[in-house]
Design a protein around this nucleic acid. Structure first.
Lengths: 161, 161
DNA sequence: AGAGCAGAGTTCAAATGTCAAACCCAGAAG
DNA sequence: CTTCTGGGTTTGACATTTGAACTCTGCTCT
């Protein structure tokens, strides 16, 4: 016999199809996509710039960008840079911008565990100027994304006591 | 003329080799690795269980697990489940466990943008029982990972006022 | 002790994805 | 109307992924 159905559906606490994380991963499925979003978060928006920064082959970049746009994480907009020719920029949508905590959490993790604590980016509260980080907060206690400001950290320590 | 140098070194604010995020992505480079870590976060630790939950081919799973162990995100330990035969468990190391905020931030994002707000997992502060989330906090204001507790959310709303 | 079985993993061919370099195309400058 | 350049697509060699079949090991049952 050995009915294949007899085990009590031992399964992850949250099945894939209902897990926000699993669904999110579908939209950011690989290394390149993460790196592209990181660039956009930094404000880099042009095809050639992204390509140069992260070293992605053009063919792959155009595919990934299409997929990112299709998922609504960014949109492509033509713009006119002064007297120059029409250019395209890929800019994050609200949905895409809200991935910032994920990317920044990843960055914090990398800074801590791979770079032994030195971080290349300094996160601050845009209003108070105080340093911030990504972490666990009582619900309602998080600062809104709007207030987040980031700038390359300086080697020497800023007036932190 | 249009000197190609006239833009002020347009480059990602933080070059790849110094960016914690980019380095972190090297250690969690693909979809499967994320899903495996998600499983481990949930406490699923056995090869066959992970395989069944996320639907990964065995060959790929064994490769990814090796890589995860090599990167120090998890370690493999044999254990004896009561009278049963020896089994192996892959359990997160401290380094791996500290990816929790990343994965949970991803989950929050997925819940919000893909599942339209209904989350399958409820995060709480283990001591107070109050709900928590991942977000931007003044430095030093985050709750320690130890205090984080998560359980499958119930459909009906918990006594939130 | 010997047979069987389950978990964990390896091997293999076919399908798919990646890379780098070459090619294309539209619009602005000349 | 030619050239240049940003933003691609195509090409073909190479690498990885998949899924099915196979192996190995060490319990468990008789």
């Amino acid at each position: 016999m050995s009915n294949p159905e007899d085990s009590p559906v031992r399964e992850s606490p949250v099945p894939m199809s209902e897990c926000g994380a699993a669904l999110a991963i579908e939209q950011v499925p690989d290394r390149w996509t993460w790196l592209i979003l990181r660039e956009m978060l930094y404000g880099v928006s042009r095809f050639a710039d992204i390509q140069a920064d992260i070293g992605i082959p053009k063919s792959v970049l155009s595919g990934r960008l299409a997929q990112i746009v299709e998922n609504g994480l960014a949109k492509k907009k033509a713009y006119r840079d002064g007297s120059s020719r029409t250019r395209h920029a890929y800019v994050l949508t609200q949905k895409g911008r809200e991935l910032a905590p994920v990317i920044l959490a990843l960055m914090q993790w990398g800074d801590k565990h791979i770079k032994n604590g030195e971080s290349a980016l300094e996160l601050t509260d845009k209003r108070s100027g105080n340093p911030v980080k990504i972490g666990i907060v009582p619900k309602g206690g998080a600062l809104p994304l709007r207030w987040l400001h980031f700038a390359p950290a300086r080697q020497d320590n800023e007036g932190k006591s």
